[in-house]
Design a protein around this nucleic acid. Structure first.
Lengths: 191, 191
DNA sequence: GTCTATAACGTGATAGAC
DNA sequence: GTCTATCACGTTATAGAC
């Protein structure tokens, strides 16, 4: 418990709260995690949590970060992005998916919804928008995001056990192909 | 305020609570709607709401019904189901989508999550499972459900204004084609 | 006995006094 | 930084009205 050099006591307290909150939100979700619980885990007074971060919601948003693997994946070659995205989701590590699950499930809170919208625009749409072919890049990107969120929703949010029990390679084959068609396939006919 | 024939006072009270709850959940969502608020709207005492339905969650589940249009649509011809599904979502009436939105957003509560899983299995998967081609009907059906939930999630749960501002017919063209490929397209190659 | 209302409990996030 | 107060929540025990 000696003071770490270069970090004030306040900074260490802040970090301690943030760490405890990350863990708890990831494990138990947003609303099931109490400010008091975070405080006890971090070894501080409950009122301090609010004083440092303003509100439980603001604290949650600070912990709601995206695995850097996403930036890497989205920056890769466009002609295999469909399959790589599907594979990344189906084979996601437990730790990485916990944070996303908490975020996808906390959509009753308007501020969190806005944050999710921003994350989606930055991480899922922006990295590919100007590389997509044809005059309808904006629609392709948005449809890709919707499809990706759909697989996340069924795998993480709903946590469908039947989908989970199916052969990963076949799910990846179907979903990857569907994603790829939207990204680089021909423009569909008007109806 | 005369007694309706064939309905006891208790039955009318129950119906009144259910009606008020449906409206409020649809408009403001699950957690933002209080038991006290439902009670005031229904003109009864807050304790009665719990007494009649057991819990706020159980009451919500009774109001979380699916628009009958879904059963109709899913029972129709398989070779146009992709486009009809996409169109149904993009052109959904305000009233019909409110109930679905409330359900899709309330996924922090485990019991509601279980209900959503059941609804999905009954309404989205069961109606097409034995009509899908090839030996991988189960995977096709699940992937179809994931994609459909994805469009619902972006349109209703996240309520993405940019997607909403795009030409409906083009969204339907892209998403309908992606859905249709999963339903009746060729089996994708293994990776 | 059946239906309804009162009052209170425990816990949630948060604000303000010290 | 800490302690205590405030207000809203779902829920329950209990007693009153018909």
């Amino acid at each position: 418990m000696t003071a770490a050099p270069g970090s004030t006591k306040a900074a260490r307290t802040r970090a301690s709260i943030l760490g405890a909150a990350s863990e708890l939100f990831r494990q138990n979700g947003y609303s099931a995690t109490g400010v008091r619980e975070i405080a006890v885990t971090a070894g501080v007074d409950p009122a301090l949590v609010i004083r440092y971060f303003g509100s439980k919601e603001a604290l949650f948003l600070e912990t709601a970060t995206i695995d850097p693997i996403w930036a890497e994946r989205m920056a890769g070659p466009l002609d295999t992005l469909g399959e790589r995205t599907a594979r990344g989701l189906v084979e996601a590590r437990q730790e990485s998916q916990g944070s996303v699950t908490a975020l996808l499930r906390a959509t009753e809170t308007p501020g969190i919804r806005a944050h999710l919208q921003q994350v989606m625009a930055d991480q899922l749409i922006a990295p590919i928008l100007d590389r997509l072919p044809g005059p309808e890049a904006e629609i392709r990107a948005r449809v890709f995001a919707a499809q990706t969120l759909g697989l996340m929703y069924l795998l993480f949010t709903v946590d469908d056990p039947i989908l989970r029990s199916m052969p990963p390679d076949r799910i990846i084959a179907y979903y990857g192909a569907a994603l790829q068609a939207v990204l680089t396939g021909p423009e569909p006919e008007p109806n």
